[in-house]
Computed example of a mutant assay.
Amino acid sequence: MADAVEEVLQSSWGEDLAEALDSVGGDQDAEKDGIIQVQNLPPPQRAKLWMIALNVAGKGDSLSSWDGALDLPEQTLIHNRSQQLIDQLGLPAEEGRDLVGDVEAVITFYCKSRNVTFTAELCWPNLLKPLLGLQLARSDLYNCFYAIMNKYIPRDCVAKGRPFHLYRLLLQYHEPELCSFLDTKKITPDSYAMNWLGSLFSSHCLPEVTQALWHIYFQQADPFLIFFLMLIILVNAKDMILSQEGDSKEELISELMV
């Protein structure tokens, strides 16, 4: 990981993540011939690899027990967020309508089956964005989404939650000067890293970029790797952050969230 940190200091943060993940993966020559060489794979083959990595290959249709009713109190919000997601992809109208239905159904059933409420702050639609390019059946789309939520998204991924406390401890250990600076500004990790953690960076990257990152990330199968990737982002931005001592808390948070 130390070598990855040195590499990321010389590029943008999107490239930082890719390079950091590559460095964790091991023998690069072997990787080129192995399953993590994903760039040229057609969607069906990539989908199979992801479903194996997420341990949902061959899993049944979890949606079969659902009556399909879209009747949650927050249904309008779910529909609008689903539509916004598909609009970002710039798809043909007919294909877009079908995918809006898939996204809305996945989120709605997840809320109903887990007895949770969807709110505007949640990044769930962004988690579905990289999955949509795999041309999955709705049942497989749900199974992959559920597996990612269950394994990789911390359950307490809320403001002041335990994952952000853990992240601050890592920052304090590896970068005490930077941690002290942010503490002085009263900038807590949840104020800038909520979407990083809640979407596994999919809210900040193009779908094809996220797919490349996730492909290696799922192969590592380490849910704690996300914390070190977030740490790398701050390491890369350390000089910029410390140079803006005169900026307000809000201005610094805006810079970090970009």
Rank of each mutant, 00 (worst) to 15 (best):
T117E: 14
K59V: 13
R155E: 13
P163N: 11
L99W: 01
D33L: 14
R155Y: 01
L122Q: 15
Q75A: 09
L200K: 09
R81T: 04
K48Y: 02
L99Q: 09
L213V: 02
F164E: 08
L131N: 10
I86N: 00
M1T: 11
G101I: 00
H204R: 06
S62K: 05
S203M: 05
L134M: 00
P73L: 05
L213W: 15
K32V: 14
L122H: 06
F181R: 01
I232V: 12
Q88W: 00
D183S: 14
L178H: 04
E7F: 05
I35T: 09
K32I: 13
N80S: 14
A147W: 00
Q28Y: 00
C144P: 02
T117V: 15
D183C: 13
Y192N: 09
D67V: 04
V103R: 00
S199V: 10
I253Y: 01
S248Q: 03
L182E: 08
G60H: 03
Y142M: 04
Q45L: 10
Q28M: 07
R138K: 15
F224D: 15
R138P: 06
L134S: 01
I148T: 05
A2N: 08
E255G: 02
P163Y: 07
A105H: 07
A147R: 03
R97Q: 04
A237L: 12
F224P: 00
Y192F: 15
C123R: 00
E255V: 14
E245W: 04
I226V: 15
E245R: 10
L136N: 04
E208T: 10
V100C: 03
D140Y: 00
A20G: 14
Y173R: 14
L85G: 10
K151F: 00
S191D: 03
D247P: 00
E6A: 08
S199I: 07
D3V: 10
V258M: 11
D156N: 12
T108R: 07
Y110Q: 06
F227I: 00
P207C: 13
L127P: 04
R168H: 12
K249F: 01
L166F: 13
L234S: 08
C205W: 07
L229Y: 07
M149C: 11
V106A: 09
L131I: 10
A20P: 01
R46A: 12
F118C: 07
E177L: 14
A120V: 12
E208V: 09
Y167T: 05
D102M: 08
M194R: 13
V116G: 08
P125F: 02
L197R: 07
P176H: 03
